[in-house]
C-alpha cells in the first residue's frame, strides 16, 4: 500500500481515471444515471491498471509518430486485404509461401516489440509464427513480395511511435 502512494503513481492514477472516465462517457453517451456503475468501475479499473503496471516502464506515445503510424497502418491494411483477397479469388490460387527470419531491432520484451509482433500478422503477406529474443519467425504468403522491407519499415514506424531507438 505504502509504495502505491508515491506522487508519480498518484499522477498515473489520475491520468488513468481521466482516460477511463472518457471511455465510460463514450460507451454510455454521457447518461448521468450510468455513473452509479461507472464511477466505481472507472476507479477500480484505474487502481488495477496502476497496480499491475507498477514495475513496467511507462509508455509515452509520440503524437507525430502516432499520426504517421496510423496513416501507415491504414494504407498497409488496405493493401494487405486487397492482396490476400485477390489471391483467394484467383482461380490459379497464386501462393508461394515460406518462412523467413527477421532480426528485431526493437528492445526484446518491451512494449514496442510486443506491439510490433502483433502488427506483423495484420500487414500484407506476413504472419508472425514465433518469437525468441530478437529472432522473429515470420510466415510469408509469397516469397517474391518485398517482405523484409515491409517488416523493416513497420519496425521503424513502431519505434518512432514509442520514441524508442533501434539497435544497430
Amino acid at each position: 500500500m505504502s509504495d502505491e502512494r508515491r506522487s508519480p503513481s498518484t499522477g498515473r492514477l489520475a491520468a488513468r481515471v481521466a482516460c477511463y472516465a472518457l471511455v465510460w462517457v463514450a460507451l454510455t453517451a454521457g447518461d448521468p444515471g450510468s455513473w452509479v456503475i461507472g464511477a466505481p468501475a472507472v476507479l477500480l479499473a484505474a487502481l488495477a491498471g496502476v497496480g499491475l503496471s507498477a514495475r513496467a516502464p511507462g509508455v509515452a506515445l509520440r503524437p507525430r509518430g502516432l499520426v504517421r503510424f496510423v496513416a501507415h497502418f491504414l494504407s498497409r491494411s488496405l493493401s494487405g486485404g486487397v492482396d490476400v483477397a485477390r489471391r483467394a479469388l484467383d482461380p490459379r490460387l497464386p501462393l508461394s509461401p515460406g518462412l523467413i527470419e527477421h532480426t528485431m531491432r526493437l528492445r526484446p520484451g518491451g512494449p514496442a516489440a510486443v506491439f510490433f509482433v502483433d502488427l506483423v500478422s495484420l500487414l500484407p503477406g506476413t504472419l508472425c509464427a514465433g518469437v525468441e529474443e530478437r529472432r522473429v519467425t515470420v510466415h510469408v504468403i509469397d516469397e517474391a513480395l518485398p517482405n523484409a522491407d515491409e517488416l523493416r519499415r513497420l519496425e521503424e514506424r513502431v519505434a518512432a511511435l514509442f520514441g524508442e531507438e533501434l539497435a544497430a
Binding site: 491494411s77 488496405l78 494487405g80 486485404g81 486487397v82 492482396d83 490476400v84 483477397a85 485477390r86 489471391r87 483467394a88 479469388l89 490460387l93 501462393l95 509461401p97 500478422s121 495484420l122 500487414l123 500484407p124 503477406g125 504472419l127 509464427a129 510466415h139 504468403i141
Partner: peptide, 27 residues
C-alpha cells in the same frame, strides 16, 4: 467473402491464417 474463400481454398493452416487476419481486418 474473399477471406472466407481463402479460408476454404488455401492449402494449409498458415496460409489460411493470412486470409483470415488480413481480409477480416480490412472488411
Amino acid at each position: 467473402v474473399a477471406g472466407t474463400a481463402g479460408l476454404l481454398r488455401f492449402p494449409d493452416a498458415l496460409t489460411r491464417l493470412h486470409a483470415l487476419t488480413k481480409a477480416d481486418n480490412l472488411g
